[in-house]
Design a binder for these strands. Sequence first.
DNA 1: TGTATTGGTTCATTATATAAACCTATGGTT
DNA 2: AACCATAGGTTTATATAATGAACCAATACA
Lengths: 264, 264
Amino acid sequence: MSTIAKAMELLDFFSLDRPEIGLSDFHRLARRDKATTFRHLSALESAGLLEQNPTTRAYRIGPAVLRLAHMREVTLPRRAGLRVALPRLAEATGETAHASLLDATGLTTLAHHEAPQYSARVVLHEPRLPLHATASGIAALAFGGGDLMARALAAMPAYTETTARSPEELAAAVARARAAGIAMSDQTFETGVTGFAAPLFDSSSIAGAVAVAAVSSRVTPELQTIILTELIKAARTISANWGGTIPPALAAAWAAQAGPETAP
Amino acid sequence: MSTIAKAMELLDFFSLDRPEIGLSDFHRLARRDKATTFRHLSALESAGLLEQNPTTRAYRIGPAVLRLAHMREVTLPRRAGLRVALPRLAEATGETAHASLLDATGLTTLAHHEAPQYSARVVLHEPRLPLHATASGIAALAFGGGDLMARALAAMPAYTETTARSPEELAAAVARARAAGIAMSDQTFETGVTGFAAPLFDSSSIAGAVAVAAVSSRVTPELQTIILTELIKAARTISANWGGTIPPALAAAWAAQAGPETAP
DNA sequence: TGTATTGGTTCATTATATAAACCTATGGTT
DNA sequence: AACCATAGGTTTATATAATGAACCAATACA
């Protein structure tokens, strides 16, 4: 593994719950030598990707990231297209809504929004979503290129009892999602969490997924109907904002899924 | 220089004018071997910091950057504090306003806003601002720690005829800024651009600078008065948004500068 | 058809990354 | 006050990973 990749893995240890990490914590979290960790952190800092809290000396995301994100958002807007749709999806379903971006290597969480209705809700903390074990991943596989499937098959850790274990099992889930226009996952990533996801498109192809992560015990047939309807609405809105068009086969599946009243 | 730092330097070649860069262009821009450049780009891509445009194969800023920026902005808001103040500063002065963040290594441009009034306006494209040659840099030196000055003296390229060349010249400019509460730079970085800057503070210390980059030929004493007044207003607002307090000496300088009607 | 350019790959050579041990400062305990 | 644990950071021989010239395949232009 390249030194560069090792250094940049350190960035993935940050989360909303852990926005600042000291040298010793990093050294333990990454299970790497302290001197090595220190030099990696220093290199990231000198590029502005990290900075040190002047009082605690702990490391946190640096200002260069803001500049880069601003640049991407101006030239290739994504977040802006979620601003309305995601909170609306969360409120309409009463569950946690989130959107992720697909690149050549997999899905990256882009934004999430928790519904305020219930105190029991799904809180997300994974920056990268495994393709084989999440509804978003299945949705991406169902409507993405074949190379994605190869990547998914390369590593299939079993997170729960119901995580797909074999290529056949995964292929079946993907086929179901392709037919329904929506991917579902029953506690395949985290126990107690049921996922529903729809693919998102930009001007060239599939670009990500929008999903609802619901508390499993709350999922009744009625709620499921609401979630599917709202998810399709959200996916249509976001894809439109991203300059994408829904493939005809998917549009037909959605029309059948949600009933004629929500057809385009 | 570390491999990590070399790889991350590649990120600085992106700008709003050049949001996508192909392998060959990168190899020329960075003056590095093509194979090396390729491996660096691939490593950045595997971390999600870059992605490839699926049609042109050119590299652009990746989705991970959005996630990191979101995380920083939630835990340590900065952009939000500029959203109102910066456009207002640009409109009130008729010139380009910008804000930058200070870290241990220097100033990073955070956001800028061009005034719509005139077609002749200053367009900024530098991601990093040199401390010794910009108004923002002088403001940072005037109100930042002594280690900053050491860093500024380490490298002092002469961008124009009027760029400070000697430590004494720089120290004089910094002293003027400290006394006035505002830094000024007459075409020290780019010919035809006059800069005015005020320091910004967060809860712990100096955190950046807000500046007006004016077309030199338009700078009359009247405009200069407007710029100084508005700049102080903007600096007060932004620092307040960032949870900062203005040091007494600076508050006094500002009160004297802008006249009693704008005193806090 | 020929030529220039693109993105990407190979492999011997060489430079850089690594990790154990060490240093210094600080905060909390006895 | 002495003690211990932990923090951030540094040193140096050793080992691993980075480098770049040459090469390949594909596309674009003329």
